[in-house]
Design a protein around this nucleic acid. Structure first.
Lengths: 341, 341
DNA sequence: TTGTACGCGTTATCAT
DNA sequence: ATGATAACGCGTACAA
């Protein structure tokens, strides 16, 4: 029932040579309409489908993209980032008739290995790299090889490599400016691990906003921990030790904001009455918790789309491309911020 | 820099024939240790890696698994199901040296097409199907073909096909029994769309628990809607029209439970004091909302592992296999249920 | 123990 | 407009 028919079977049935069938497949102009029809009929009758393996062999291209990601519960593999970015990648690769191979690295050291492995084994023509951590070694290793790749996330600018990212600096700036405009001055930052590039960037946006408003920020307001609810809770409690305590908290991740909510409510304070909170990522949680969280929405789907278009253009190798693409995020204003009393 | 070396290059450098190199790769016993070393050295020197495309062609096997899923926000592609099941699939396929190709269907009609396409194009040896809806057509179509496949989710028993599922009936039974044991009798069910197999099953578990306790349940207590917060809210409000209103609510999905929480709090009632709630899936949300939601945890990772082992065993085609594997879920008791006053 | 020759299914080149 | 032939890189029966 399955198409085990080869190009030869079709040729035989249609009384032509295999090369003629091949030309029909390629829709060559130099085939008479008559034989073209005959061949097509034979293909239908035999349920013929080209063997992509054989085609890849001679074309020296698998028409397949690799997608490499790191297992681990943090952003790369986790909610809601991954399914959404995958939708974008999948949509574009399908429309360009590329296959998509997945490889999940157990740890960060394995990422480059997997890329290179897929390439050298000729399973893929190029690779999409889901990288959230600073990992110059990885990117340098890839750059030194002939593996075409695009990083989803920000790559160090020193290494000229293709990347697609959202505007973390600008988005964090907007979020903090939003708070400053509401009259807040003592704005705390709940930051994540320093080896995440996006954490560095969001911190940068925070500082930038203060600079622009000509206000100093107290280093005591900057707390850093893991991107978990627990640490959001813990760090917020630490903030309450300060006198005066911050009137607003900007969290680099919604999950941390949840922890902050917890600590704030526990202390008997209200949001946004007593304290304002802004998150980042627009996690589904953000519109569920009370009060609904003001946060930053990242164009995740579009990032997947853009990165995939990018790697395909590189592979088809015509036009020169800009190395870095940065997509705009959007501040989603909900109920967690009020004017500073 | 990338291994463009072929088996011939290695052969030449090692002063042997290509077939000898091939035997070294296969670790054949009939090669002298001496030449084996020489060949290996040559491979290293040239950074040789076998071309899997060529190997696939002659072996008539791509050593690749297909993973087909439906786009759509519901369970298949969404959180937290997908990343977790992918972890399991990925771990096993890697350990067996299988590649993993992804194909995302735009709609349910496309699922079978994508499976068949990957197969007939010889890109994959078999397929893992992430199916949540009742879709006999799909499965019948696949069964009629020669495409080896395993369904993740429950396939109709009439169609003898391989599947891995969790014990939805048993798990729902446990959840409802938990409520009955706490003295609740008026237990409502917030069900999802009837064309989801898991909804049918969880309903079945609900009925089973009542039957076992020898208690009748009022059809009025059974509400059905989409698996959204909104419908959880709406249906719970409908329940409040009843007199007497239910003292407990079992939701087939945590997201619906969130909506139920909303409606309950809005009415000025407390959980679990006035009304008990049980969810399903152990969504991250479940341990965030207040009070923490008692729910059912599904062994998602293990389902991915099991399904992948299954398809590989089918492909390697030795031992006969049971068609259906059912994995046990676990009731996670938190704070949302109390004794019926 | 090792080499020779062929085939996997396709496309591309060169004829006709 | 179409056919014959070679080649892609590898595995394997058969021969030596």
């Amino acid at each position: 029932m399955l198409g085990l028919a080869t190009i030869k079977d079709v040729a035989q049935l249609a009384n032509v040579s295999p090369s003629t069938v091949s030309r029909v497949i390629a829709d060559s102009k130099r085939i008479s309409d008559e034989t073209k029809e005959r061949v097509k009929a034979a293909m239908q009758q035999l349920h013929y489908h080209p063997n992509l393996i054989a085609r890849s062999l001679i074309r020296r291209s698998s028409q397949t993209l690799g997608l490499v990601l790191s297992r681990s519960t943090d952003s790369a593999f986790s909610n809601p980032f991954f399914p959404e970015i995958l939708r974008g990648i999948s949509a574009v690769s399908k429309s360009y008739h590329y296959g998509l191979m997945l490889a999940a690295a157990e740890d960060y050291a394995e990422e480059a290995k997997l890329c290179l492995k897929m390439m050298t084994e000729r399973r893929v023509d190029g690779v999409l790299l889901l990288a959230s951590r600073v990992n110059d070694g990885l990117i340098r290793e890839l750059s030194a090889s002939d593996c075409p790749f695009v990083v989803l996330g920000r790559a160090p600018e020193s290494l000229k490599c293709y990347s697609v990212n959202n505007d973390n600096i600008q988005a964090a700036y907007s979020a903090v400016r939003h708070l400053l405009n509401l009259g807040h001055q003592r704005i705390a930052l709940l930051n994540g691990p320093a080896d995440y590039i996006f954490c560095q960037d969001r911190f940068e946006g925070y500082r930038f906003a203060f600079r622009e408003f000509g206000i100093e920020h107290d280093p005591e307001w900057i707390k850093s921990g893991s991107l978990t609810q627990e640490d959001g809770y813990r760090l917020t409690r630490e903030l309450f030790q300060l006198d005066p305590a911050p009137s607003a908290i900007f969290c680099v991740d919604d999950v941390m904001a949840i922890g902050a909510y917890q600590a704030i409510k526990e202390r008997g304070l209200t949001i946004p009455g007593d304290i304002a909170v802004v998150g980042f990522n627009d996690d589904p949680l953000a519109s569920v918790i009370e009060p609904h969280l003001t946060t930053v929405r990242i164009p995740i789907y579009e990032m997947g789309v853009t990165a995939t278009q990018m790697i395909i253009r590189i592979l088809e190798g015509n036009e020169p491309l800009p190395f870095q693409r940065v997509l705009s995020s959007e501040l989603v204003i909900r109920q967690s911020c009020g004017a500073n009393p």
